[in-house]
Design a binder for these strands. Structure first.
Lengths: 230, 230
DNA sequence: CACAATCGAGAGCACTGCTCTTGCTTTGGG
DNA sequence: CCCAAAGCAAGAGCAGTGCTCTCGATTGTG
């Protein structure tokens, strides 16, 4: 079903890939705002209108790049996790967080594309949801393992009255075996992780934090403690 | 030095303000990417080239809006803090965080402008630094009060070896009276706060967190605990 | 009063995303 | 095998963008 599709279909796949490659190159070089369909087409030796056969609009090209970026980040994180899969949950947690940071530093514009300001008028289609969830799922898995493993999770402060129902719902959706307090803390930690990464990447730490790597490691270790990892 | 400057100077100030107002209106309506000098000029009944007498480029207009946004956020946070200035540090901490969130929800595009992806090729001039620091200074002040107040700060885990020097430096820069561990935790919490706000605002919490307000309150209360507030 | 600085208007350049029409090539069914 | 249908690249064109430059008119100052 993948090959054996005739020269035309194969060419289409190749051209589509070439467009995305060139677009990614421009994205990395100049950022999403300066990504120009015409420039991509020019670089590929075609005329701009031809490009619309492959992507109906600039935003659709961006969507494709967004999905790829989520997948690239997810894969980096998963690979880093596999390398330490046999170690203690706390170490695996830190490893995944550090992989996220490394990927972000290595792909700043792609990171900005997926975790920065959303492009105006553009709402991500449902197809971006699964790739976007990969890092989150990884973190959930680590905490679940810790919960089921030796020692279990550390006791967390109870969630306040007005959050009981919501915390239960979050736990039921994400990890039914986890205590509601841990599930809620996990979601918060997930967001906070990207706060740390974003602040470093977008310059808010300039003249504030210099030794970013040990700072980050310590911060995410604390983050892990906050979700009950020992 | 402010008035008594002749009709010309006064007119200049007024026109400059009118441009910023209209630009802010377009920013709120459509986002930074769609902010067009020509559209602003059109709405003001002038021709686009005339606008360059007041702002040498589109990016300079954006810089002005960025500074205003930081100041608007800072003022909101400070006002919210004043209203609870007599209460316990933990409550003041939560109040400031909630003010940040409220401002962000009320000014999504301005928030995206200052805490989202930086515009490409654009590096914020030094003039943006003081307004950008206002929220951070507020949080520092709360923790310092708690440290000097009754009960002091809770004991925090020691920072690891490789972070000793950096944590000391951060403390020396930001709040010499605080323990290094608290200063480091404070900077991390500052970044994490904006991770929470950003994730809610930019849609990452869609279909994950529904009851955002109690969730946020609980998360920032935990954040406060993480810097030693009781 | 006269001179210089300041300002608005207009034309123009090089660019953008996107549409539509015109032909050429590949493909698959009769 | 052949031919209509579908896929494709190219080009012209539209409306919009940021920005520059020039040309009068207005204004403040020596």
């Amino acid at each position: 079903m993948s090959t054996a599709q005739g020269a035309r279909a194969r060419a289409r796949i190749e051209v589509t890939a070439a467009i995305k490659d060139e677009a990614r190159r421009q994205l990395a070089a100049e950022g999403a705002a300066k990504l120009s369909l015409r420039a991509v087409a020019r670089e590929l030796g075609m005329v701009s209108s031809a490009l619309y056969r492959y992507f109906p609009s600039r935003d659709d090209l961006l969507t494709a790049l967004i999905i790829d970026a989520y997948d690239s980040l997810g894969e980096s994180a998963e690979r880093a996790h596999e390398a330490v899969a046999q170690t203690a949950p706390q170490e695996r947690w830190v490893a995944v967080c550090e992989a996220v940071r490394r990927w972000a530093l290595g792909h700043p514009h792609e990171y900005a594309l997926i975790y920065g300001s959303p492009v105006p008028g553009y709402t991500a289609p449902q197809t971006t949801v699964p790739p976007a969830a990969r890092v989150g799922l990884l973190l959930i898995g680590i905490v679940r393992d810790a919960h089921g493993g030796p020692g279990g999770l550390a006791e967390l402060p109870a969630v306040p009255e007005d959050l009981h129902a919501e915390a239960d719902r979050i736990a039921a959706d994400l990890a039914p075996d986890l205590p509601a307090s841990a599930a809620a803390a996990l979601v918060a930690a997930w967001a906070q992780l990207f706060g740390l990464v974003g602040f470093e990447l977008f310059g808010q730490f300039n003249r504030v934090v210099e030794e970013r790597e040990p700072f980050f490691r310590h911060a995410v270790r604390q983050l892990g403690r906050g979700v009950g990892l020992r």
